[in-house]
Design a protein around this nucleic acid. Structure first.
Lengths: 228, 228
DNA sequence: CGATTATATGTAGGACTCCTACTCAATCAA
DNA sequence: TTGATTGAGTAGGAGTCCTACATATAATCG
């Protein structure tokens, strides 16, 4: 069972961290190139993309502290980035009707247009991901979902609007259908692991205790076939 | 085969990139906390860790440009970080005997000690990785290996000293042994996916064409059982 | 040998990141 | 109404990260 290498090697989690860190280096470098081509910095581009993803006529405008939380930076740093975006004419600050202390952030037209181009992902990363066989893409998505959930539970990351903790998510509602075993009761349609979302606009988060239940059902995999 | 969600969703590679980006955000934030606790910045800590990992009495000292390449930053930025580390007494610059233009970077004793503490990974990330069931850790390591290889082939990342492109790597040399199907001819021992390394000190890279052959054998999985 | 050309590093300057500590105004709770 | 909390911003400082440019050495080619 145990092999020579078990005592020779770093523990697996440590090597995983190292690997993810290597990916992170490449990702950050790619974001620099991409953002820079549009006169932005990675932080600005991420903030712009976040605003674009979360802007809806019906939803309240994001605030500076939302940006800070989502990018895991301090509020002053987020404030810096927002100031830069405002100076570049990509966003506007407007008073928040709900709270006179707060400032809502809204995209200008120029900002909306730029978010579409600069908010994308480095082409290299997309290419590499696309080169994986589809089943492995699916497996990776599921693993990444787990990691994000773990980070979220430990408070290391802002809550993601993911299927796995959504009110509309019914894991393995169609156990007989291997391709699309889950069900989304928002659009009322079956879907599979390959459709799992990490930032769905329609997501409605469950309270922690209920989320835990749904999550457990999701990670446990399909229920065993019922004996006759 | 196709479901409603196939047309509703972002393509899977795009969602994967988004997910990896979320992990990257958390990782970078964690690196800030960790490095800061030791009076460093993430870049400085990464440079220090790199020097610690690659320092061997027998090996030539790393140079500034090696740091820049590995961290995917420009040489001036790497030069800045190295200057800061030198000012803090953690490394020394010494003339390179092979090339009078170059500067070799060596850790001081203080630097060696600090690299051990500050060069580690954020505890949160290690915990989250360790919480995955071991088979999933193994699967993730294999997937991350593939992504890194892909980034490397596209020149987006410095060559990693990974098993999968090493002269001593014999993928599926023991096809009958599911737990440790590979073989490392450096230590002359069998090992499995869970032992795959991404930065092995003993790695000896194969030339591109031979690496391609070994890589293909690795990603193809175990050979089909021989018919009787 | 001497004149390129390439390489390794470093400097300069500027925009931005990122932090802590602080101010200010609005809100909430007692 | 007083006092604590919250959202935003400022101030100041070290560091990141870039593009250009400067300097020295090395390799190459007549």
């Amino acid at each position: 069972m145990t092999a020579v290498f078990d005592s020779l090697s770093d523990p697996l989690p440590r090597r995983l961290a190292a690997g993810l860190s290597r990916l992170s280096v490449a990702l950050r470098a790619g974001q620099w190139r991409l953002a820079e081509a549009h006169g932005l910095t990675p932080t600005q581009a991420q903030a712009l993309a976040l605003l674009a993803a979360r802007s809806g006529a019906a939803r309240p405008a994001l605030r500076v502290s939302d940006i800070a939380e989502h990018l895991a930076i301090t509020r002053p740093t987020a404030s810096d980035a927002v100031t830069a975006l405002e100076r570049k004419g990509l966003i506007r600050r407007q008073p928040d009707p709900r709270d006179a202390r707060a400032t809502g952030l809204v995209l200008t037209e120029a900002g909306t247009a730029l978010a579409r181009e600069a908010g994308d992902w480095p082409a290299t990363l997309l290419d590499v991901a696309a080169d994986l066989p589809p089943p492995e893409q699916e497996a990776l998505l599921r693993l990444v979902t787990k990691l994000i959930r773990g980070l979220q539970l430990r408070g290391a990351i802002a809550p993601a609007r993911m299927c796995a903790t959504c009110r509309f998510f019914r894991p393995y509602a169609h156990p007989a259908d291997a391709a699309t075993p889950h069900h989304c009761s928002f659009v009322d349609a079956p879907f599979g692991d390959r459709h799992l979302r990490l930032d769905c606009a329609e997501q409605d988060p469950l309270p922690d205790d209920e989320a835990e239940v749904v999550w457990t059902r999701f990670v446990s995999g399909p229920p065993a076939a019922t004996p006759p």
